[in-house]
Structure formats: structure tokens, C-alpha cells
Amino acid sequence: PEAADLRALSRHLYEAYLKYFPLTKAKARAILSGKTGDNAPFVIHDMKSLMEGEQFINCKQIPTQEHQPQTSCNILDAVELRFFHSCQSRSAEAVREVTEFAKSIPGFINLDLNDQVTLLKYGVIEVLIIMMAPLMNKDGTLIAYGQIFMTREFLKSLRKPFCQMMEPKFEFSVKFNTLELDDSDMALFLAVIILSGDRPGLLNVKPIEQLQETVLHALELQLKLNHPDSLQLFAKLLQKMTDLRQIVTDHVHLIQLLKKTEVDMCLHPLLQEIMKDLY
């Protein structure tokens, strides 16, 4: 394709990204570096601040299997589960945002509808993990649309297996952030992830690969223009896709473990759909 067409595709995907994803990297980095003046995020660093911070978290309650009377023993357990439920609600909303973004990729909605479902089922958690990276630094992560900063140490202090959920994402994100992608680069990279032609069960791979190839060309050109001094950035970025698959596999296994061990845990129906028979 002509360079002008590739640039137009890049602009289109960047506009869709800005339209559907409310917390951009530019905004997140401004919050993390304290450039937002009085609007500093609320910091959650222990159980007390978690309980205080819950009012900031947009929490749609997911019904638990049964309401058990709270004892002093399980109050802290309940806090962790409640927080986990809030994370699920936000994740489900994020899946909706990613779906809208996917639909804006030229050609995506013309693919076989079963294949659209497969691409989203397998791609959406990878996309969500990539989108976490701009919200993170080595010390913690923004949550609740940037209203809260939760420390990495606090997440590590939660009981098992909750404490194991975020640490691999921090390790990945800190390395990923050294690539210094901006929002316009991210938009193309997310589209490349969604258009992976090797997802299990795809019916018609060829049109997906053709779409991905065009977006890959657009991404390669974008990185050359936007990061002229960053050698091999395109290759380094593509390598991240391998790490990402392992992180998603481990994440899904942890969720499956949670489902078995936490009697009060209810998985959001949309997330259940996505994770069922995933890996």
C-alpha cells in the first residue's frame, strides 16, 4: 500500500482509540508525574486506605452466590473479594471499549461473525494487559480511570492468590514502557494484536492475515517516523506479543484457581464467556 494510505489508516485508528479509550497514555503519564495539579489520585497503600478508597471505585455489584453473615474473620477476605469484583466490572466495561475499537478497524466487521467473536475472545485480555502498561510504573498502578493509585507493595501484600495476580503485569509493563510508545503507536499495536490469524478455531484466516499485514505496514512506518532514533523498535514490539500470550495463559489459570478456591467468588458473565475454554 502507498505510504499515504498507511498514514491515513494510522490516523483513523488513533482517532478511534481516542474515541473509545477514556484514559490515554498521555493523560495517565501526566497523572503519574504529578502534572495534574490539584487532581492527584487517591493513594491506596493498605487495607484502611482501600476501604476509604472504595467510594472512588465505580463498583457495580456482582451478585454473590449467597449472602453470608460477616464475621470478624472474613471481613478482610470480603474486602479483597469486593475489590476483585470492582476490577471485574471495570474489565467488562473495558471489553466493551475494546470491542468498539475492533469494530472501527477497517474490514473487521466484514469478517465472518464467528471469526470476529474468536478474535475478540483471544485478543481482548492481551489488549487489556497492554493497556495497563501506561497506567503503571515500578511503584504502582492507576485504577478507576486514573482516580486512584494503588501501590505495588499493597497488591503484593494481599492474600494468595490475589497477591500473585498483578506482579507479572508490573514486570511486563515496566519493560514494555521502556519502548516509550505513545498513544498513536499504541492504537496500531492494539489493532495488530486483535488481527492475529493464528487464534484457535478461526474459519477464514486469509482475510484476517491480509488486514493484519496492512496494519503491520502502517505500524512499521509509524514507528520509523515517530521514533527515528529507536533502532529495531518494530521488531522489539513484535517480540512482546510472545511474552503477552504467556501472561494471559497464567492469568486465566489464576482466575480458574480463584473460581475453585473462593466460595464467594462470582465471575462476571462476559468474562466467563471469554475465559471459558480459552487456554
Binding site: 466490572s89 471489553v95 468498539e100 470476529q116 467473536v117 475478540l120 458473565p269 462476559l270 464467556e273
Partner: peptide, 21 residues
């Protein structure tokens, strides 16, 4: 596959945000 993924399918089929998440 569509049958097993009703919410995803619905999200794909509608142009706005139709599903009560």
C-alpha cells in the same frame, strides 16, 4: 461459537453500548 458467546456477539452486533454490563 456465537451461541456460546452471546454477550460478545451482542456487543459486536450493536453499534452503541447495548449490553448492561
Amino acid at each position: 461459537l456465537k451461541e456460546k458467546h452471546k454477550i460478545l456477539h451482542q456487543l459486536l452486533q450493536n453499534s452503541t453500548s447495548p449490553v448492561d454490563l
